[in-house]
Design a protein around this nucleic acid. Structure first.
Lengths: 114, 114
DNA sequence: ACACAATACCTAGAGAGCCTATGCTTTTAT
DNA sequence: ATAAAAGCATAGGCTCTCTAGGTATTGTGT
């Protein structure tokens, strides 16, 4: 995977996953990995800063879930899309569509992506 | 245009334009602008460094053309794709296809881009 | 029992790439 | 004459990804 291509899309991918239900960092990465047929291997050094960025922009809200088995248990930080986040996802998807259409135009193959 | 999306693609777009014939910086930008329906406005601060980068990687060769009208004339620095550059373009197009397919996979709309 | 991988979070610093701003020259249009 | 367009180039700022390191818990194999 060329990580330079990834630059603008990480946030959109995160928002997209969260639009289908609350999730936490590690699981978001796994979901993206699976749905991209193993292509997008979101690294921790990109994933967590991106989540914090989105949270600062009020596109996400976070809440901790401490225990999951008996006592102690693994702590997970779940993220939830805000209304503002939903709007941002819509906007990013549109931007992506324009971008992909632009590339297709230059590559001159007539493919259109929505 | 979201310039973050552009990151990995500038070089591919340049190579693509040059694959159809020698050109110079300013004209390459105009061509890309036209073929992307006005979407990609390659800025000078991205364009020229990219051309120099590609040249350092031996993907392009450059030659100056000094005069074009009567005397004096505008100087233009033409770029020509090397065989290595042609191979790089092929590779970048394939990478782009994988990337776009990955995004489509996550966006879950079944669109495929080649 | 013990080591190791997987799960789960975080951050600092390096490296790369795009943009704004600036500077220079020549040609064309007003 | 004056401004805009054509044409090239670079410095510095900003942002983003990655590597590498750190912490802690849980499951697995020997």
């Amino acid at each position: 995977m060329d990580s330079r291509l990834l630059s603008g899309t990480v946030e959109m991918l995160i928002l997209e996953v969260l639009a289908r239900g609350d999730s936490y960092g590690y699981q978001i990465a796994q979901t993206v990995l699976g749905e991209s047929a193993g292509y997008f291997q979101l690294k921790e050094g990109s994933l967590y800063p991106a989540l914090h960025r989105l949270q600062r922009q009020k596109l996400l809200k976070a809440y901790w879930i401490e225990a999951d088995t008996s006592e102690g248990g693994r702590r997970r930080k779940y993220y939830k899309l805000t209304p503002k986040g939903k709007a941002a996802l819509k906007s990013k998807r549109e931007e992506w569509a324009r971008f992909a259409a632009g590339v297709s135009g230059v590559l001159g193959q007539g493919h259109v992506v929505a």
